[in-house]
């Protein structure tokens, strides 16, 4: 899922303080799971803004609400009147939601309350770790299910660099060396020899380096092309 964290409150205040009517809009899927942007956090942020406004003797009308996902039309549609009737939407969605909503409403500014960080897993309560870079060309079958693109600080594809120390990355003792893990995992899987071949330079066009990406389901795309319009 997508992991993000809230921007520092001062930064948020700076960006919103000139608006009179603000809707803090939570997103109840990914960023709720990481306790950054769900309904709860939206209400907390809205209360924070109210306190701050009072302290600064600003009159700001702040409300909070949340939708299941800000990145899909159907979830947003029923709240659009609400959303449009405000001066500013302070979105607590990931960047996807902020973009999606901005594109959808156009005329009302949508500001981000979060910094969107990565695709992560939740190994335990309150901990979120990056495990995938969304590079569009998965090689996890070759690396014991551990992604060297996302989890090696240098995205090396042919083994560890010289910086590995006691299984940790040279960047920080808090980061596991992905290649150390890969080698150990492959040994365990009895598949170490899969690492012996030199991986050639890869095609990054499937990642962001190919420009913004789009995926359409083939059968729907084909049908629409044939019909000359959107399916309904």
């Amino acid at each position: 899922m997508i992991v993000g964290s809230q921007k520092p409150f001062d930064e948020i205040w700076e960006m919103i303080q000139s608006f009179k009517k603000i809707l803090v809009l939570g997103c109840n899927t990914c960023v709720a799971v990481c306790h950054a942007g769900g309904s709860k956090e939206a209400e907390i942020l809205s209360e924070m803004i109210k306190v701050k406004a009072k302290q600064m003797s600003h009159s700001i009308d702040v409300n909070s609400m949340s939708v299941m996902r800000q990145c899909e039309n159907e979830y947003l549609d029923e709240f659009m009147d609400n959303i449009k009737s405000t001066d500013l939407v302070l979105s607590m969605a990931c960047g996807v939601g902020v973009n999606f909503l901005s594109d959808k409403i156009n005329a009302v500014p949508v500001y981000p309350a979060l910094n969107t960080s990565f695709y992560g897993g939740v190994p335990k309560e309150g901990l979120f770790i990056e495990l995938c870079a969304g590079c569009g060309n998965c090689i996890l079958h070759l690396t014991g299910g551990i992604c060297p693109i996302a989890r090696c600080s240098k995205s090396l594809m042919n083994g560890p660099c010289g910086g590995t120390d006691k299984g940790k990355c040279e960047v920080s003792k808090d980061i596991d060396c992905a290649w150390f893990l890969i080698v150990e995992r492959m040994k365990l899987l009895g598949a170490l020899e899969k690492l012996y071949d030199v991986q050639p330079p890869r095609d990054w066009s499937t990642s962001f380096h190919g420009g913004p990406r789009k995926i359409s389901l083939e059968h729907i795309k084909a049908y629409e092309e044939q019909q000359g319009g959107q399916i309904r």
């Binding site: 109840n28 306790h35 769900g38 309904s39 709860k40 949340s66």
Partner: peptide
Amino acid sequence: VSECPAQA
């Protein structure tokens, strides 16, 4: 209740 991030 107060921990639920979706206030569900």
